[in-house]
């Protein structure tokens, strides 16, 4: 169901405002911890769950306005990715000593949501009604969400390790253990990698039925392939050689930084199918 242009003209600012409200709800406990750490009202996880609800509402309104999954533009894609990162937090938040991880994940989601609000609404010329295309984009986004969580866990692993190595032990017991971070990083990376692989395969099948799409020259495809190889090597060294810890964290950080560079170049500078 595709609504008229008027609906979108009215609806798009509305969803932006709802997304901004969601971002504000995400921000409240982060600020609350600094301004009023002893007041549980400001640090209550309800703020994040409330923001998650608003975020979801914004995406659903987009679905209603655009008549398809809201994945066809950079704004929608980044918004959905931010939602995945917050869902990642919701999965992990009951584990002990995960406060610092929450801060990093929520920070990352806020950055993604912020970029999404200034990114253009218009998307590519893809056929949004094709289930192959939608499955491709959805799987890639789930994959990117997993890799975003892996990146956050990797950064936190490196920070905790640095504190232990430098003997900065004040309040160390509040941080997650290195082992927990390493294990969760592996799980998030494996989820991201499997989903990315499936998304790439589905995208390949879609492209095979659309010869008009000159995908050979699309930098995103080659970048994603490089990224896939990077994570494949990272997971391989862990599974086969048993290497973990710093190496796994470096793969998590390096991969996501590469991904960010690729998305920026492909999405903002170059124009193409992606």
């Amino acid at each position: 169901m595709v609504r008229g242009l008027d609906d979108r003209t009215v609806g798009a600012p509305l969803t932006r405002w709802i997304a901004i409200a969601a971002g504000a709800a995400y921000l409240v406990p982060l600020m609350g911890e600094r301004v009023a750490p002893d007041n549980p009202r400001w640090t209550h996880p309800g703020w994040l769950f409330g923001g998650l609800g608003l975020h979801l509402v914004a995406l659903l309104i987009d679905v209603a306005l655009w008549g398809a999954l809201p994945l066809s533009s950079m704004r929608f894609g980044l918004g959905a990715l931010a939602l995945w990162v917050i869902i990642g937090w919701a999965v992990l938040h009951r584990r002990p000593q995960m406060e610092s991880l929450r801060r990093l994940l929520v920070g990352l989601a806020l950055v993604l949501l912020g970029i999404a609000q200034v990114a253009p609404d218009s998307g590519g010329s893809a056929d949004l009604s094709s289930p192959w295309f939608l499955a491709h984009v959805a799987l890639i986004l789930i994959g990117l969400g997993g890799l975003a969580v892996s990146f956050t866990l990797s950064v936190l692993w490196l920070l905790v390790r640095r504190r232990l190595k430098l003997k900065k032990l004040r309040g160390i017991s509040r941080l997650p253990t290195l082992d927990t971070l390493d294990r969760l990083n592996y799980q998030a990376m494996a989820l991201g990698f499997v989903s990315l692989t499936a998304g790439m395969a589905v995208g390949g099948m879609w492209a095979a039925t659309h010869p008009e799409a000159a995908l050979g020259a699309d930098i995103t495809i080659w970048g994603t392939l490089l990224l896939w190889c990077w994570y494949a090597v990272g997971l391989h060294t862990r599974l086969v050689s048993g290497w973990r810890g710093r190496l796994a964290a470096v793969f998590g950080v390096g991969g996501f930084v590469g991904l960010g560079a690729m998305v920026t170049v492909a999405g903002l500078v170059l124009q193409g199918w992606h």
């Binding site: 905790v160 232990l164 160390i172 017991s173 941080l175 253990t177 290195l178 082992d179 927990t180 294990r183």
Partner: peptide, 21 residues
Amino acid sequence: AREAVSVGRAGVELARQVLGS
């Protein structure tokens, strides 16, 4: 009950901070 208050428990806490359980 979170913080270690003896040398023995402090050793355990540091080991757990790295190794988890």
